[in-house]
Amino acid sequence: MRFTRKCLWASFQASLPVLLGYLAMGFAAGVLLTSRTGLGCLWGFLTSATSISGALQFILVDLFCNQTPLFTVALVTLSLNLRYAVYGLPLLERWKGLPLPLKLYMILTLTDETFALEVANQVPEGEDSLTYCFQIAALDHLYWIMGVVSGCAAGAVLPFNSKGIDFAMTALFIVILQDQMKVRLNRLPALLGGVSGLIGLALYPQNMLIPAIAILLTALFALRHSLEEATHE
């Protein structure tokens, strides 16, 4: 780990789209939590700081309202976040040199967006990649907490019409994918992902992620031979 001003600035710049997305999404989730359950900033902080998970942050409002049995809470969390189980894979080798406390913290903060930025790893020439990724993780974590807690504080009264602001999240994924598509090898996996997503959505509109990811993994293994051959060309 080597902290420099240049590296911190690069991490901050890379995390800016996430700042927009997390503040907007977190704010909306915070407003929902406070207006429906009456719970204040403390609970917004506790929930957002421990499971940094967008879909879950919205769902937990329902779970809290109904005092849902803990087993069901576990099951809902598992199905919403199952995709995280494979997120460590591209990072296994790279994180080997990390001190344990930092590694544990970076596991905590491994969200969709942080994962994408860490895999993209646009670290400036001559700077330390692990420091760069750690800073992105910590910044994203902070943005999410800020978004949720400020949403709780704002409660039900919105100062402006923020309808549609969550499109920032969609746009972030589009931009990330657009950059990845420049690498030829990423194109077929991306196409498979899109098609799997659509099939998952058609099958289970309410919970598309698990079927989509299951189909995706099946397709990736079915086409492993041709995809790996392309790697060696």
Binding site: D112, T170, P189, G200, M208, L220, F221, L227
Partner: peptide, 23 residues
């Protein structure tokens, strides 16, 4: 097999997330 999935999963999952965002 795990390393292979690690190499190809990132653009694929991002594409799934775009569908998810637009659902």
């Amino acid at each position: 097999a795990i390393l292979y999935v690690g190499r190809v999963i990132s653009p694929a999952v991002i594409a799934v997330m775009i569908v998810y965002c637009l659902k």
